[in-house]
Design a protein around this nucleic acid. Structure first.
Lengths: 211, 211
DNA sequence: ATGATTTTGTTGCATTTGCCACATCATATT
DNA sequence: AATATGATGTGGCAAATGCAACAAAATCAT
């Protein structure tokens, strides 16, 4: 049964009731298959039950940019990305995956049976949107740093919870980190070396310490 | 009466009913005064009725960063920024202002009288969060560009709706634009000059054209 | 109107960063 | 085990950018 945050505060019985009441559907998708295009109406709240997916934004000129990567228990749908200003949003299966579709209207409009669950799920959805916004604000905060060193430190302080001396793993390769920080990989390596020499950080592979 | 998007699709009569049913309160604040600190519960949905305000995030070390600037009819509250990971969020009056407080619980929990308005306002709130997320994604998209020219173009294409040859104003000074793009002001000026010489853009003061 | 303050526009110079090329190491794949 | 593929680590060099300093123009306050 799904442990997604959208069901926070609900036990298995609650979920069962919801599935019946909310007319929830589930579908499997093959890797590469399109899951949905975002509408300009609030239609679906979707949950990844297994596998992984991606959301892309495509602009008028056909430029395609990755918006987010979705794993098991992640939630997506128009609630998170409204297709404003001519952008088209598409969710696509990355690996084979199973997606749960919950009709947005069923969530928002109260029914006679399960009223408590409605407001519970709405709460959870707002918490999820706020969480997603924080992820974006973090990235902005990092990208808005003036140089490579500050970018890396801003990221490491977040990833290491600002705790000094404790070893932690960044959940990606250095190459991916460079892309996330929007700096050249070799420039990042160079700066890391300097910071090691100065005793500011310790690192080995994708393990880091703040000193 | 407030024209805020949170009341989209409602006439004056609807709003009046809501104000009575939702136990809405209104308070005036002097410039610089603190309006509220964000709680870790979904407590308030707030609307700026007049004047302006700012939201700051303060981290454990006391570093203070501006999260957003709020003008008349803007909406703020825990729904938009949840104080995760040790950050404290504070809303503060910029100019003298008047703020409307709507209890979050009153919005989410259905009542006997005005059920249609509940789901209407919830809809609008989700639309507003999605809109705010797009603002953040735009900034990320701009900051993630490789150089000054691409950053400026990414911004201008957004601000000018990708329409070529049409004059439009960026709603800020060049100095502020440089801060928004996170580049040195003189570097921005230099690049603007080059782009003018190459016939890519036209500009005068804070007016631009894409060519 | 006057003076003060902010914004714009420009330039030389130092520094940072990106780009390229290469060697080494780790990880899959056959 | 052999091979391919991708990630890491390093360095030279050129280009882009930031910094500092200044003059001119525009805006604001009195």
């Amino acid at each position: 049964m799904s442990q997604s945050k959208i069901f926070n505060g609900m036990d298995e019985l609650d979920k069962q009731r919801i599935f019946e009441c909310f007319s929830v559907t589930t579908r499997r998708f093959l890797a590469g298959e399109q899951i949905l295009t975002y509408s300009d109406k609030l239609n679906n709240v979707c949950v990844v039950l297994s596998g992984s997916a991606r959301v892309y934004a495509i602009d008028a000129e056909g430029n395609c940019s990755l918006i987010e990567y979705l794993r098991k228990n992640d939630v997506f749908g128009e609630v998170f990305h409204f297709p404003f200003q001519g952008l088209e949003y598409i969710a696509e299966a990355d690996e084979n995956c199973e997606i749960m579709f919950i009709g947005y209207d069923h969530i928002v409009h109260p029914c006679s049976k399960a009223c408590l669950h409605h407001s519970r799920i709405i709460n959870n959805l707002f918490a999820l949107t706020a969480e997603k916004m924080q992820t974006l604000e973090l990235r902005i905060n990092i990208l808005a740093q003036k140089n490579v060193r500050r970018k890396l430190l801003a990221y490491l302080e977040y990833a290491g919870h600002s705790v000094k001396g404790e070893k932690f793993s960044i959940g990606m390769t250095i190459t991916e980190l460079a892309a996330y920080l929007n700096v050249d990989r070799s420039s990042l390596m160079r700066e890391m070396k300097r910071m090691k020499d100065e005793g500011i950080i310790w690192s080995e592979g994708r393990w880091f310490k703040l000193l």
